[in-house]
Design a binder for these strands. Structure first.
Length: 134
RNA sequence: CAAGUAAAUCGCCUUAUCGCUGUUUUAAAUUUUUAAAAUGGAGGAAAGUCCGAACACCGUAGUGCAACAUAGUGGUUAACGGCCACCGGUCGAGAGAUCAGGAACAGUGCAACAGAAAGGAUGUACAGGUAAUGCUGUAGUGAAAUCAGGUAAACUCUAUGUGGUGCAAUGUCAUGUAUACCAGUGCUUGAGGGCUGCACGCCCGAUGCUGGAGGGUAGACAGCUAAAGUGUAUUGGUAACAAUACAUUCAGAUAAAUGAUAAGGGCUCUGUAUGGAGUACAGAAUUCGGCUUAUAGAUUUGCUUACUUA
RNA sequence: CGGGAUGUGGCGCAGUCCGGUAGCGUACACGGCUGGGGGCCGUGUGGUCGCAGGUUCAAAUCCUGUCAUCCCGA
């Protein structure tokens, strides 16, 4: 099992993030929201992921860092099972929209719910696109 | 012992598993990736951005006015509005705390209510005094009543100082585009611009400038961490601080690393046979010196003690 | 990194420049007009002027520090 989450798998390009937020679709499982978009990466990876916490809800930088670290941890430990059946490359941004600092266990549960919803949404959309094309 | 006061220091630790990031070495691969190993990886305030510098660029930044800052004396420092010492004022019983602490015989203002009168004004009562007169004292109003009055954190004056913008500075490379379109304005009789407000002066200036509607980039490297560094000791100095000697290398990310989980141990509070609860404030962003603010808890040292009680 | 604004009854705002009385609308309570409601009229309650310190005889107002909220530029 690969538990790593290194620099290449993080979403870093400012341009890509801008297009992601303007064109991407989203699913949510409170207190998480996933923004995703089908795209293409030059270095051949299947996905790149970023995390984000609003400054409006958490004024202290310490709290924001804590939540982002927990989110990365929850994603890192379970990403293998989320992406078993994905073939096309995607960009992801996970937002935390709650107002209290969560625990790792809560986040892990919500993260699986979130990616279940994503899989459903993804499988619903793809055939429609195919029909439109045909 | 208690209460107080001044100053200094620390601000959780260990192990295991899974990760992140910088550097170095080796190997693969081959010209920037992968793997392994070694090693470094948040703070006393990293915070607020309130002062002062370093460094970089703008035209080596001209004159006048304006604006702003500072304000006892001396010292300290790269510099300061910081710090230290002393003098003076105010507060406190004291140790001690605190102060924008220059000028009101340069000028202009301001003073509610009360009061006869609030800065060119002298009234009432009583007493004293005179040739005569608010001439003198007391009472009364008020913060202040003739005192070279108060007020400059009112304008002002005096002294001193300040060019501007900031690492998104700045340099190099890569990628890409529109010197196109519409409207206005201007081309040496000068539009507009130049990184402080105004005036003058100076400089640049036609493939220009302003607006509209649009197009493109938003990556990499350098700057970027060895420095007014840190620690210890000695010497000089009342002190801030300085000098010398020895030792030492101590983050460098960029949607932004420095973490997560588990177990055990400290410490504090509570309870006392086991236990339970808590463990603060807070996260580097060019770098330093200060200031200010937040902070569970712990440690050390100097000094004071009026009243009250023993 | 830099620049700016705001904070005053429960709510929305004046007053701050140029210092002496904190006021307006709305809301709330009571009374009146009406058969009742609405509306109008009258009376009243309610404010540490964000916080701390200073200047002054006197501070919402002047000065310094600080806290919070909001906005703007690169």
């Amino acid at each position: 099992m690969n538990f790593s989450f290194n620099n290449k798998e993080k979403l870093k390009s400012k341009k890509l993030i801008d297009t992601l937020f303007s064109n991407g679709q989203s699913v949510s499982a409170f207190p998480l929201r996933l923004v995703f978009m089908s795209t293409h990466f030059d270095d051949g990876l299947l996905f790149k992921t970023g995390v984000s916490v609003s400054k409006r809800h958490f004024k202290r930088a310490v709290d924001r860092n804590r939540i982002k670290r927990l989110m990365r941890e929850a994603f890192r430990l379970h990403k293998a099972q989320y992406f078993d059946n994905i073939s096309t490359p995607h960009a992801f941004m996970i937002l935390y929209i709650g107002k209290e600092i969560p625990s790792l266990i809560q986040l892990e549960n919500k993260m699986s719910q979130l990616f279940d919803k994503f899989s459903k949404a993804n499988s619903n959309i793809t055939p429609q696109e195919n029909e439109a094309d045909s």
